[in-house]
């Protein structure tokens, strides 16, 4: 299986993602944002970081970069596109995913492990993961998911909520909402579930000695589902 990780000026999780993808069997290639075309891929990843210094709005400048047209074409033809953290922000700015990631409710940069509940397994990203709750890492200043009431209704009706913040037992209450996100939303799909954007970083949880292994479950499932 072939994957491509797009590097923008200011991306900083691109190499972690490269390591994670290769560890679980992907043939990964790095693609520069100013390239016109993406090499043949089964999966495109927009990594975390601070593309273009978060100027204007997080992800807004990257959302207009040269490579993005190919990403949009790939996504619209059904290809799998995964955006983590800044990648999620870029996906909302391109319009591939609804809503926007606003500044965290309490104005703090949050860097810690969190638990997220998998809300929909009828997709390639979570299909064969047996657990219901994953422990992953977040590190962001703008992760406060927001959308209009109409959009929220449509997201809920179409099963587009992918993961929500919760405690280790899966309780999705306000206490376990780190950034003020609407309905504790940590990640969403597009309608067809081939595009996933989420704030937590699975690529940071692939080593039992350094972190945890719930990210491993994510990548193992992904390569098996493709």
């Amino acid at each position: 299986m072939k994957s491509s990780v797009i590097i923008f000026p200011g991306s900083n999780c691109d190499r972690d993602m490269d390591v994670a993808l290769k560890k679980f069997g992907f043939k990964n290639q790095m693609v520069w944002h100013n390239d016109a075309k993406i090499p043949k891929s089964d999966l495109i990843v927009l990594p975390g970081g601070f593309s273009y210094g978060d100027y204007l709005r997080c992800g807004s400048i990257a959302g207009k970069s040269r490579i993005i047209k190919s990403v949009i074409d790939f996504a619209n033809s059904g290809g799998l596109v995964l955006g983590i953290c800044n990648g999620f922000q870029i996906l909302t700015e391109t319009g591939l995913l609804p809503g926007i990631l606003q500044q965290n409710k309490y104005l703090n940069f949050i860097c810690k492990n969190v638990f997220v509940k998998i809300k929909n397994k009828e997709n390639k990203y979570f299909k064969k993961i047996k657990k219901e709750v994953l422990e992953l890492h977040i590190a962001h200043n703008e992760g406060n998911y927001f959308c209009s009431n109409d959009e929220l209704k449509s997201i809920e009706d179409n099963g587009q909520i992918a993961v929500t913040y919760c405690d280790h037992g899966g309780n999705e209450d306000e206490k376990n909402n780190p950034n003020g996100a609407l309905k504790n939303i940590a990640g969403i799909f597009n309608k067809d579930k081939n595009i996933l954007g989420m704030m937590p970083h699975p690529e940071r949880m692939i080593d039992p000695f350094l972190s945890g292994e719930d990210g491993s479950l994510f990548f193992k499932n992904l390569i098996e589902s493709l």
Partner: peptide
């Protein structure tokens, strides 16, 4: 519409 503002918010 295309860049300076995000009309969601």
């Amino acid at each position: 519409k295309k860049l300076l503002a995000n009309l969601v918010i």
